[in-house]
Design a protein around this nucleic acid. Structure first.
Lengths: 339, 339
DNA sequence: TTGTACGCGTTATCAC
DNA sequence: GTGATAACGCGTACAA
């Protein structure tokens, strides 16, 4: 009756198979070095006992853990979900396990989680974007843990990153906006503090407007956290301005969809009364009416490539190679042409 | 120049602080047993060296890992994302680390991942729904690993679960549909094989229709995997039937939104020409036009409660207590009243 | 309050 | 091709 925890160990398997523990270990890790017959006996002993290697013990003697860690700001939004799903699938097919944690956009928590992943023996770590305290990078370098940044790419930054150029992409979108005759632009940006993706997107807009000779002081910019309702509220504030913008450019699709919703509630027609744009190209952008003009980013491709590159770094010991992925301006009905 | 990996150990800290390793261990794990003065010296030594406890070693001598594992079918869809985010936040505040993996709705992969989590010393495991091969449950019981099911609740099942009754909720929604005068019902269901949530939702509809005296053989039912485009395609097939349904009930919001999209593309007005319902109450349901009639589920609340209960099970050794959470029928403009 | 010593399950090095 | 043995870093009796 008292079966309790009879977690079988390598020794148990060895006894059951009538071989030494070393042979069992070899059978599992380098089957090529073991004779067919013993291999078979070991396998059946493993199955019979339901043996599972003890990760902690393995971690102690070997250096590799076949584990990759990833820290993302949040799981709630489709932005990261899609890319991370692809990242994990690719890792799995490469024989690695993914450990994910989310930082809730808090740099403190992120720093803490980097340490947690390190102590768990993560062979490599994926982080989102460039900006974080220098001590985090120092820690990773001191520990010699390969890391790769994703969801961002900046040509002038040497850190290994796989992603798209947030600033340039938004600059291009703004290009299109201006080409369609809009001059009265307002912006709803995601929180820029400690978030290089958000601030670079904003920068893309302001830089382009400046080139156009538009006085930035006259451009209403509202910064707000990542949430549909925040986008809605910001939109309403913009619509109450005496000088209504002809277009509201949003830092991401979630804010933009919030804006569209509030527009509908306020009886403001999109794009007849006001145009709206987003950024990310998530599902949400496709299902609203009218469809959202946005910048589509290759999330899944980015996840797969990040997995490939990070594993390459881990296994080769090489320094990471950055890759810029293309983004695509998707013009839909949420924007009106004034020309 | 050859600093290499100088990962500091407990011994290093002990030497730096001029105490024994045991004292350092105690300072970290049971500060109450250590004098104020030594505690301070240890702390500063830890900081100075950037010491991080070695998880593998800790796992070997202690039994607890302060780690909870979760296996979800996919990260891509908002369904699980929201609940898991809440789950992880609550775990974090309870001092636990969450390990997530996704099974891509594949029972084989899920079984493998259960073993992987066990290997890694997960103190407890969260699984989605009831259905999986018996050997998975046997393994968990044999290993004495507490597990909790979520996103489902069935009164007649003894396994510890926190969630809502998928069948009953859909039954109620169907109630409303019938009360609004619909008799010509069609269904787009998620894949039911190996998925008790999907099959119970479908059952909720068919049971209610049967009660109404509707011949089930006359009810078109299309089963399709979880994806917007699949919902769209299924909808189109239904609309091409000679006897068009007055309402299409979908197994989840994603399929329903796909249906709405295709309706728009086909020039079919919702709800004037056909009504559509979903299930889950995710953001997607709120942002489409018209808003989707659906069953709203308390995702975040479920995640938090699951965390609390699983940790309770782990720490007390008690058997898990099931909790049924309420779901809410949300009637929006996507459904027309025929009475 | 603090220190000593052992064992946890595995891999790697060395003989055989 | 296979077996003995020494680490790996930590927690925890037990001793002081």
């Amino acid at each position: 009756m008292t079966s309790h925890q009879a977690v079988p160990t390598l020794d148990d398997v060895a006894k059951a198979a009538g071989v030494s523990p070393a042979t069992v270990s070899r059978s599992l890790n380098s089957p090529g070095l073991v004779s067919k017959s013993t291999l078979k006996r070991v396998k059946s002993a493993v199955d019979a006992l339901g043996y599972t290697p003890h990760f902690g013990a393995r971690f102690m003697s070997a250096k590799r853990t076949m584990t990759i860690g990833a820290i993302i700001p949040t799981m709630e939004n489709a932005i990261f979900a899609k890319g991370i799903q692809a990242f994990q699938e690719r890792l799995h097919s490469l024989g690695y396990t993914l450990l994910i944690s989310s930082s809730s956009y808090d740099p403190e928590i992120e720093a803490e989680q980097v340490r947690a992943l390190a102590s768990r023996g993560a062979d490599g770590i994926l982080l989102i974007g460039y900006w974080r305290e220098e001590r985090v990078y120092e820690f990773l370098k001191q520990r010699n843990i390969p890391f790769l940044l994703a969801w961002a790419f900046a040509a002038n930054n040497a850190l290994p990153a796989i992603g798209f150029d947030n600033r340039a992409s938004m600059y291009q979108l703004c290009d299109r906006v201006l080409a369609m005759g809009h001059r009265n632009v307002a912006v709803i940006s995601g929180t820029t503090e400690g978030n290089d993706r958000a601030s670079n997107r904003l920068k893309g807009i302001t830089e382009r407007l400046k080139v156009e000779g538009i006085d930035l002081a006259s451009v209403p910019i509202i910064e707000t956290p990542y949430d549909i309702d925040n986008g809605a509220d910001a939109f309403e504030r913009l619509m109450r301005l005496s000088d209504r913008p002809s277009i509201v450019m949003c830092g991401n699709d979630v804010l933009a969809v919030g804006a569209m919703q509030r527009a509908q509630e306020m009886g403001i027609k999109v794009p007849d009364d006001v145009s709206i744009t987003g950024f990310d190209g998530i599902e949400l952008a496709r299902v609203v009416t009218p469809k959202l003009t946005t910048v589509r980013v290759p999330h899944s491709e980015m996840g797969r490539r990040a997995a490939d590159e990070l594993v390459r770094m881990v296994e080769s010991g090489d320094v990471g190679r950055s890759q810029e992925l293309p983004s695509e301006i998707v013009v839909e009905k949420s924007i009106a042409s004034l020309v």
